[in-house]
Design a protein around this nucleic acid. Structure first.
Lengths: 331, 331
DNA sequence: ACCCCTCTTGACGGCGTTTACAAGAAAAAT
DNA sequence: ATTTTTCTTGTAAACGCCGTCAAGAGGGGT
């Protein structure tokens, strides 16, 4: 079928070793044989078999990006950042989406452990990532966004979720809101938890009241956003502002408020989370927390690449977030 | 480092062949040795080396998705569709983004040819995909969206771009528009060309005038959208409706029109292209053509999977599009 | 003793990479 | 001029790990 090194070797009467050396520049080869080899390669359209190469080298020059959440704007840009940096550094990228499903995640990681890739960038489905300790012994891992606080020695790149939650809440408080609701989607992950911590901290700092029922969980889709805000307003009509932690949900939230003729921001102020070009032209333009997912992706891959070369390499990066103030928060 | 089959074999005193048979179920193994083997595998946390397996089997159970465009909503959903179906069928997915860069694309495909994957789903950077004929002889290829009309024997899955362009334009015409502009971003690809053909066909059908200057190319970003619409309105102020072929651009178009205090749809009607949840809550809600990228992805992978098993397999799929009428087109 | 099953095995193959070594030429030393 | 040393260039063979196949071993039945 496909042409192999051996065939090239036979054709021009040199050994396979020589060909390998020409290709990889691992040894000096005379200009003449070199030319001979290159011509034969060109003529036969020869491409060295990656699989064989990988087997021998024990390297694949590939990395995996394992993502759990449904691809919203955030994830898309993360993928783009990782992918771009991977290509720049000569790596291929394997993409695994586990749909917030732990079983899939385990399966995927098990597969990846089998020398399929040189390293993994992981955004886990849950906080309790016990298997990480083991996995990490076999393969460099870098976490993005979500992590397990018990494993401090696994590199990670995150947005400063605590600060983001704190800033957004503070902003609302400073504009007179006293009863601020939160809608989130994925429980038991550090992203959500840290943002909520920031939210609570801000409330505490300003000595404001707080009720558990102001925090509502919903399914992370447009429809989930609708339902969540409906629930929230029913059980806590005192709410005057809502902080929505998910990209997709905020669309549903806006739709539902509009359907109920609740004005934004006059009746309910809104702050969203995530990166989202369209936010600027929504009615009203959406105030939201920007997270730089592209940059997170790039940095994560850089760290991974370093760790592949030097397993001792270790680094935590927490990127600043910024509150992009538009109209939906009423200021 | 990592534990191999040989080590397991030695540990429990069976041959590697037996272990292989247990793992792959290729031959009957007595219940007792079977248990013995499985226990040893479990105990040692053994995972068969994929690379070696791939080399031997001449299969990788992986496919590549090579995309050229910047990840907008459309691409994101396409990736999701392909990825989901891939996992369902037991394949890993390699993602390559070539950023509309032909050189990257060539390089990536060359790499992929080296037995890295069993097949490729490709959305090429350009129409002129001469190398495809050759590539296809080595590896199953399925095209999505974009294709080369000269190669009818390469399977492809596309949206019915012609019909989409025709429908959108017709809709505008039926609502009284006589001077309809188009903003597109990527030239020389069938998607753009077919949509434009549909646009022209509709104009022709209704016996309307047509000027080349109504069709404007812009860079496929938000900023590109701004510039394009500015140019378009300057050189052709008679325009009363615009049909925007790119996801990202339409955001810029809306922004620019708003900045210039041009009302949508009263002064300029707008129809967008692509899938885009936020469209519903933009001011005004955006009428747009929906393309089902998720479905395109799934089908493309199905076809690829079939073609991997049976290289003769061949199929073209053209999916219907639908015009989702909201407010921006003025009806 | 022979045949027939069932289970297990040893050895080979797949395709590059790498290492240790050989052969020949050139340079240096005698 | 001859021997020794040093390079240069090229090679054969081992290696990585698993899958497969033909053949062997062991057990039971007749």
């Amino acid at each position: 079928m496909s042409v192999t090194m051996k065939m090239i070797a036979k054709e021009i009467g040199v050994s396979v070793a020589t060909i390998s050396h020409v290709i990889n520049g691992t040894k000096k080869v005379s200009e003449e044989t070199r030319r001979l080899v290159l011509e034969a390669i060109e003529r036969n359209n020869y491409v060295p078999d990656m699989t064989a190469k990988n087997l021998r080298r024990k390297k694949t020059k590939a990395a995996a990006l394992v993502i759990s959440s449904y691809p919203d704007n955030y994830v898309t840009k993360l993928i783009h950042g990782v992918g771009t940096r991977a290509r720049e550094l000569g790596y291929s990228l394997m993409l695994v989406n586990t749909s917030e499903n732990e079983a899939y995640e385990m399966e995927a990681l098990r597969l990846l452990r089998a020398n399929m890739v040189d390293g993994i960038i992981l955004s886990p489905a849950t906080n309790r990532i016990d298997y990480l300790a083991d996995l990490q012994r076999h393969l460099p891992v870098v976490l993005v966004n979500r992590y397990d606080p018990r494993f401090e020695d696994i590199p990670r790149v995150t947005a400063d979720d605590f600060q983001a939650g704190y800033d957004a809440t503070t902003h609302l408080i400073q504009h007179g809101h006293r009863h601020i609701g939160v809608i989130y989607s994925v429980p038991h992950v550090t992203t959500t938890e840290n943002r909520l911590r920031g939210y609570r901290e801000a409330i505490l700092r300003y000595g404001l009241p707080f009720k558990e029922s102001w925090i509502v969980r919903g399914f992370g889709t447009t429809e989930g956003g609708r339902l969540a805000v409906k629930t929230l307003l029913q059980q806590s009509p005192e709410i005057t502002a809502i902080f929505v932690l998910s990209d997709h949900m905020i669309i549903g939230v806006v739709q539902e408020l509009r359907d109920q003729s609740i004005r934004i921001p006059d009746d309910i102020a809104l702050i969203g989370f995530g990166d989202f070009e369209a936010a600027a032209i929504i009615d009203p333009p959406l105030t939201n927390v920007s997270l730089q997912p592209d940059t997170i992706g790039r940095i994560a891959f850089d760290i991974l690449a370093n760790k592949i070369v030097n397993p001792e390499y270790h680094k935590h990066v927490s990127l600043p977030t910024s509150l992009i103030i538009r109209k939906s928060c009423g200021c």
